[in-house]
């Protein structure tokens, strides 16, 4: 691919990020999801472990809750992006352009994911204020790289679910149901060791599983080399993008065929 081909792609992603950030800044729904949800989840999750005499799992609860917030925020706002495009009547117009919809949504979803870094911060802060859990992160460098990678990867995973919103305006109900298995199977709400063995293959193809392992290890200082886990997250991200590319082509065709692009 030449530089002249890459520049327009980067420009579209950059401008989609800016467009989404401007929209988010005035969206009550987005702000509520971003700020309120991590506080509620942290209080419930950390509280459960502490009052259940498992204080060693406090940090696990913090990182897990942070990732749940990032995942939730990304999933629902990715769906909201397409719902918003339907509402404003721009969905069919952006589909009429030569730019693949996947690229546009990648930029917009990434904007949401970047904003959701705040959710992780709020989670740690809630842990400190409500339960006096220290914010201390043993390996900030590994933690930061892990967080960036997991946010990118969760964005890619969110795009897979987001494709359903192109097909139908009623995808929200399905996504609400599909949301919980992802963070349970990823070991974000309960440790993976408590889940039945047959769930392991599902856990391993979900990027939040690896994100949680990295963030936990980096925060507690218990991990060795992070490189294999980084590579797994990157590999999964490209795997999601590959499936998303195929899925979006199929879904776009089905939406054009059903004539549902302008329903809202």
């Amino acid at each position: 691919m030449k530089t002249s081909d890459i520049m327009p792609i980067l420009r579209i992603i950059k401008n989609s990020v800016i467009l989404q950030m401007k929209s988010n800044a005035v969206s009550i729904y987005f702000i509520a999801t971003l700020f309120l949800q991590p506080v509620v989840f942290t209080v419930i999750s950390v509280g459960t472990y502490l009052y259940g005499n498992k204080p060693d799992l406090g940090l696990f609860a913090i990182t897990g809750t942070g990732l749940i917030s990032i995942w939730n925020n990304n999933l629902f706002t990715s769906g909201e992006i397409i719902r918003g495009e339907r509402r404003t009547g721009t969905l069919s117009l952006v589909m009429a352009t030569p730019t693949p919809l996947l690229l546009i949504l990648l930029g917009k979803s990434f904007a949401n994911a970047v904003a959701s870094v705040l959710a992780m911060g709020i989670t740690f802060l809630t842990g400190l204020l409500a339960f006096r859990l220290p914010i201390g992160i043993s390996d900030p460098f590994a933690f930061t790289i892990g967080l960036v990678l997991v946010i990118f990867s969760i964005t890619c995973l969110g795009l897979l679910f987001g494709s359903l919103f192109i097909l139908t305006r009623n995808a929200g109900e399905f996504v609400s149901v599909a949301n919980f298995p992802v963070y349970i199977l990823s070991g974000l709400s309960v440790p993976l060791t408590l889940l039945p063995l047959w769930t392991r293959p599902f856990s391993q193809v979900l990027t939040p599983t690896w994100g949680n392992i990295i963030l936990n290890a980096a925060a507690s200082g218990s991990g060795g080399s992070m490189l294999p886990n980084y590579l797994i997250i990157l590999g999964l991200s490209f795997f999601y993008l590959l499936i998303a590319r195929i899925l979006y082509k199929k879904v776009e065709y089905l939406a054009l065929s059903a004539g549902t692009l302008e329903q809202w």
């Binding site: 401008n15 467009l19 401007k22 404003t88 721009t90 117009l93 009429a96 352009t97």
Partner: peptide, 27 residues
Amino acid sequence: LVFGGERGLYWRLSGYDNLQYFADLYK
């Protein structure tokens, strides 16, 4: 492609930004 009515634009952006965004989408 131009549809009638008020829908089909990003209301929270300026007129200039709307045109800029679609210019990018059309490469």
